[in-house]
Design a protein around this nucleic acid. Structure first.
Lengths: 104, 104
DNA sequence: ATACATTAGCCAATATTTGACAAGTCAAGA
DNA sequence: TCTTGACTTGTCAAATATTGGCTAATGTAT
């Protein structure tokens, strides 16, 4: 099976180990089974965006930190294998900057 | 209709104007109708990744430049409305850097 | 061998995106 | 005003992609 790396997945696995919890102790709170959570930790599935704060609470972690990693995974899915990844991110940053400027 | 901005779309529209071509003169090369191409230019649809070099040729533009904008649109779709957008891109850049390092 | 944590594989269910078409707006010109 | 042509919008079925739930498998410790 192709195992794609996931910063988010690695982090929640580490946090879960830190809290000494088993998959079966965490999965129910997210309304899924252990197989699914296992896949999320391995980056084979994505946690739903709105479940991030839930898992942050369970694992006593910072929601923003987890959200950042989750977003990074989504971006990575787009740009991995792209030689122009950095240029594209640069262009995106510019766009965000302009958006913010317009809002003011 | 919600009109989402698209750097790629705006660019190809500008290029098409520059070449003085109508939608109906471009769309067939991409095997689509004018309605679809119109939506792509307005960011309501995404051109397929593998069609980028085709349209670059039609519009006598640089494939890499268009690909960069296309990727930027994909990234933007992920991070728009996210207050942690910049942090996430930062994290992604780090990850890419590590990947490259490992390859060497 | 048993127990338990985790993982892999499968496939139906769900969600998202696309393709194709019809109808619409708008502007220029007869 | 009527027509034509460029472009746009809306709709909806079809195609794709993703997820959820289940079962069986793997690995490890007792």
């Amino acid at each position: 099976m192709k195992t794609m790396e996931s910063q988010f997945g690695e982090k929640i696995r580490a946090l879960r180990a830190q809290q000494q919890l088993y998959l079966r102790q965490v999965a129910p709170w997210l309304e899924m089974d252990t197989a699914q959570l296992s896949k999320i930790e391995k980056g084979l599935r994505q946690l739903k965006r709105e479940q991030i704060s839930t898992i942050a609470n369970i694992l006593k972690a910072d929601t923003d930190e987890l959200l950042t990693l989750w977003l990074a995974d989504q971006i990575y899915a787009v740009v991995k294998d792209e030689k122009l990844a950095n240029e594209a991110m640069q262009a995106t940053e510019e766009k965000i900057k302009h958006k913010k400027t317009k809002q003011e």
